[in-house]
C-alpha cells in the first residue's frame, strides 16, 4: 500500500508551475485504508444495532404513559424519536452493505441480548421510574456508546465511511441522551434506599448484558489480543 506522505504531496507540485494537479490525499488526511470489518461483519453489527434501537425506542414510547414525573415523560418522548431515527439510519445503511432484506439482518446478537431487552422493558408501575431509567441510561446506553465507538474506530475510514458518519450522528445523540438520563437519575435518587435500588437494578441488568457480550455479542468492543508468554 502506498502511503502518501507530506513530502510526496509537496513533490507532486512542480516548482513555479500553475498546475492544479495535487496528491489525492492532503497532508493532514491521515486515514488509512484497512479496517477490521469486512462488509459482512459491518452489516452484522448494524443489524444488531437496528434491532436494539428498535426495541429501545418502542420501550421508551411505551413508558411515556407510565411515568408520573412530567420532566421524565418529556425526555422519554424526545429520546424515543432519537432512537427510532438511529434505527432508520441503520435501515438505510443495510441495503448498501449487500443486505437488501433489512428485516433478515435485524436481529439480536444472541438469546442473552433478547433476555436483556426483555428485562430492560419489563418495569411498568408508576413507582418504577428509577428502574426504567437505570436500565436505559446506566446499562444500555453506555454499552451502545461503547459498541458504536469501537465500530467507529475499528472500521475502515475510507471504505466504511458512510457507516462512520451515521455512527457519529448516533453517538452525538447517545452522549446527550446519556447526560439527560444520568441527570434525571441523580435528581431522582435522593436517599440511601434509592441508591440501593438503582445499584440492584444495574447489577441485575449488567449481569445479563455481560452474558450477552454487549449489544453485538462477544467482541462488541473488540477482544484483547492474546499475549504470548515467554517472549524476550
Amino acid at each position: 500500500m502506498t502511503i502518501i506522505t507530506v513530502s510526496s504531496y509537496v513533490d507532486c507540485i512542480p516548482e513555479g508551475s500553475l498546475s492544479t494537479a495535487r496528491a489525492p490525499f492532503a497532508p493532514w488526511d491521515r486515514r488509512t485504508l484497512p479496517g477490521l470489518f469486512d462488509v459482512e461483519e459491518s452489516a452484522r453489527r448494524i443489524g444488531n444495532y437496528r434491532w436494539t434501537e428498535m426495541r429501545l425506542f418502542e420501550a421508551l414510547g411505551g413508558w411515556v404513559a407510565t411515568v408520573p414525573e412530567l420532566d421524565v415523560k418529556m425526555v422519554l418522548g424526545r429520546h424515543c424519536y432519537h432512537h427510532a431515527w438511529h434505527a432508520e439510519l441503520w435501515t438505510k445503511r443495510l441495503p448498501e452493505l449487500r443486505e437488501m432484506n433489512v428485516d433478515r439482518m435485524t436481529k439480536p446478537a444472541n438469546d442473552e441480548m433478547v433476555a436483556f431487552m426483555n428485562a430492560i422493558s419489563e418495569p411498568e408501575a408508576p413507582d418504577q421510574t428509577i428502574e426504567k431509567l437505570v436500565g436505559v441510561y446506566r446499562v444500555l446506553i453506555p454499552r451502545t456508546i461503547a459498541a458504536y465507538t469501537y465500530h467507529l474506530h475499528a472500521t475502515s475510514p475510507i471504505t466504511d465511511s458512510p457507516t462512520q458518519r451515521s455512527l457519529k450522528h448516533a453517538l452525538q445523540d447517545e452522549f446527550e441522551g446519556y447526560c439527560d438520563g444520568e441527570m434525571l437519575l441523580q435528581s431522582l435518587i435522593d436517599t440511601p434506599e434509592k441508591v440501593a435500588r438503582a445499584m440492584k437494578r444495574q447489577t441485575e441488568l449488567d449481569q445479563i448484558i455481560t452474558a450477552a457480550g454487549g449489544i453485538t455479542g462477544p467482541g462488541s468492543i473488540g477482544t484483547q489480543p492474546e499475549t504470548e508468554e515467554g517472549t524476550v
Partner: peptide, 28 residues
C-alpha cells in the same frame, strides 16, 4: 402518551417500522 403507546403496542406486522418511526417523531 398515545403516540408513544403506538410505538410499543403493536407487532411490526401490524404497524410497520416506518409507521412507528412517524409515531416516534410525533412523540418528540
Amino acid at each position: 402518551e398515545g403516540a408513544g403507546r403506538t410505538c410499543f403496542d403493536f407487532d411490526d406486522a401490524d404497524a410497520p417500522f416506518a409507521l412507528k418511526l412517524d409515531m416516534a417523531r410525533q412523540c418528540w
